[in-house]
Amino acid sequence: MDNYQIREATINDIDFIIEAIIEAEKSGSEILSYSTVFNLTETEVRKILRSILMEEMEGCEFSLVNYLIAFKDDEPAGTIGAWVEKKENPSSIIKSSLLGYYLPRRSIEYAAREAKITSDLIIEHTADALSLVVVYIAPLHRGKNLFSLITNEHIRRHPGVDSLSIQVMANNIKAIRSYEKYGFRKSLSLKSDSELITKFLPYNEKVLMTKTIDE
């Protein structure tokens, strides 16, 4: 059995978390939505993500404190972000406040003009559920059950929460199988028929998967 330790992410882990956000967002493709939607280079996206993560604001996928990292021999091996979604303070608004604050105005104007179609695939996070985001396992550590290990630790740290939710692009078959193995089931799917959507996003269909947390 491999020996992994899990701890909360800190400011020293920002580079790894940025890598995780970018790889998760690409979903196995070369399309980085933060670049395509906001007309930014990947270097510019990385710089903006760093500023946002430094804010340490809680409750969305740009919240450093919401990430757990699995380590082996002091090297980060995988990470998952998670928080309990609050109906009165949706993570989508927290996230967009952070993004909107740090994005150049020209990027928001570009998104408003060119990329509103991406709204077709926006699924709001499920209220009161533990929302898992940015599942990233470094290549050398795949197949070591780190998804379960980190998810179980998130659950342990959120007593009283009775359900999990996770969103994934429908083309990410490996991830979907891994989530199904853990007990997730598909509960919603949004698909866009527009040919333009894959100019901005890795795929034209997104799936919401949920799971009841066992007693």
Binding site: I93, S96, S97, L99, R105, A111, K116, S119
Partner: peptide, 21 residues
């Protein structure tokens, strides 16, 4: 945001930017 289904993350950003402007 609970009252307007279209008030999603992208539209929130656009909204704030338009109000500021």
């Amino acid at each position: 945001a609970l009252d307007i289904p279209e008030w999603n993350s992208l539209n929130h950003m656009i909204l704030i930017s338009e109000v500021e402007s």
